[in-house]
Design a protein around this nucleic acid. Structure first.
Lengths: 253, 253
DNA sequence: CGCCTGGTTGAGAATCATCAACATCTGTGG
DNA sequence: CCACAGATGTTGATGATTCTCAACCAGGCG
């Protein structure tokens, strides 16, 4: 990871990919991201409305809750965490978004973002102005359909999380999160068993309705049982099938 | 509520409204339901694609999880509960839908319903074939926009439930549910303080991630504190502001 | 009338939160 | 390059909330 050959003087960071030239047509995520199911010329049309800004550094915000809603965003690199602040001032993490995933759709109804979005590490996102997307969708029915599907997916995922919070133990919740990240890695053709967790233990706990301490203890227990190997944020799933069994629960019946 | 003048011989039930002749234009819910923000002639177009079947009796299903997805549904009367079955065979209630509300949107992404929908009492629904809605949306941008908003709302609500489950005590969760129903009553110009709970204690507990026993105890406690008056399913909010304080939490700070 | 479902109440147990101490990591400046 | 500070993570002891199990009550329907 040398930066010596970095030809971008204005962005002296190892993560500078000169992404300004990226477009949906050549993006390696285009089989899992918004352009899925579009024809080449339609991708070009989509591409025209998409804006790509400079990368976000770790900790930078993409938007804040209550900002006027103008766009949804697709993650190109890195990881974004969405969270809102509860009426008593606590943070509630509502989701983690990895490359190829679209965030910000909760802002559509109120014309304001319902949550804040913050980079967990250096990240790149594609901004998709929503007005334009709506217009384009009326002309490209398959795009409209796909965007409906994206939103529906978000609903389904939220409902799965609700079930997880409502019915499952700390161990099951954490196993489920690890497996979720694993399958999202696989979708991107990356290793399903070895990856780096982009978020802190605190964020994991917050997302899953647990305290940091509980998360830490479960990680330790899993490690002792040789279900996973943890080195800080580096993670290896040693027995993914056992984890799956934990989640899919043998208990009920 | 007399049935003596009921001129519908085939449906000898007090809930028979002769709804076959109902249309979006004359439906008293049309200011809060899908037609919101549509012009009169657009409402007619919408009305043409909507199908209205016979009422559902208590316990009947509108659709089952995994049924092919063809339509979303707007509740006209009664109450519908949506639920899914977890991998270990337990039921998870994912939402209660009251008149003027739209359900079934979680089926869009997989072309199959993600959950089952069951009438909690005699109910009437309007079926909105999704293909037709998509087509119509490409011709009526404001309909497309509104439907995007509906889905976005569903996401927002799910995220609020996630927060509730993740951060709040049994008392706070139940207070929040009561207030939610209350405000939805108000939206329909019904009493915000006196209403009948269409769902069982078991359903409430299931929805909120609590056991029946806990729900029952909290109801008793609230009653003892004179926050509410309960008579079976009939409910009166005696001190809604106190309930609101409980939910909006004084504790955190 | 008695059964069955749904609801209430009690006693004890379990999971997870809280509080507290300590360890580790990161980045900063000497 | 090392030292240090602050943030982040780990581990232990204790306690509270909620679940579990169990008994009992109320209402609706055959």
């Amino acid at each position: 990871m040398t930066t010596s050959t970095n030809p971008c003087p204005s962005e002296n960071k190892k993560h500078c990919h000169h992404d300004m030239q990226v477009n949906c047509g050549n993006c390696r995520l285009n089989t899992i991201c918004l352009p899925i199911a579009l024809e080449t010329d339609q991708i070009d049309q989509l591409d025209k409305i998409i804006q790509r800004g400079r990368p976000l550094r770790k900790g930078e915000h993409l938007y804040h809750a209550n900002d006027p809603f103008t766009s949804v965003y697709a993650v190109r690199a890195g990881a974004i965490k969405c969270y809102s602040i509860t009426n008593d001032g606590k943070e509630q993490v509502t989701g983690f978004y990895l490359p190829g995933e679209v965030l910000g759709m909760d802002g559509i109804s109120k014309h304001r973002h319902g949550s804040s979005a913050k980079a967990l590490e250096t990240s790149a996102v594609c901004e998709i102005p929503f007005e334009n997307l709506g217009d384009l969708s009326t002309r490209i029915p398959s795009l409209q359909r796909h965007f409906f599907q994206l939103m529906s997916q978000e609903i389904t995922q939220d409902q799965e999380l609700i079930t997880l919070l409502s019915k499952n133990s700390a161990e099951q919740r954490i196993a489920a999160l690890l497996l979720s990240i694993s399958s999202r890695q696989a979708r991107r053709k990356l290793s399903a068993t070895r990856f780096r967790l982009p978020m802190s233990r605190t964020d994991i706990g917050n997302y899953l309705g647990l305290t940091v301490e509980t998360v830490s203890r479960v990680f330790s227990r899993f490690q002792k049982l040789e279900l996973i190997a943890v080195d800080n944020k580096e993670l290896e799933l040693l027995k993914p099938d056992t984890l799956r069994l934990m989640v899919d629960g043998e208990e009920g019946e």
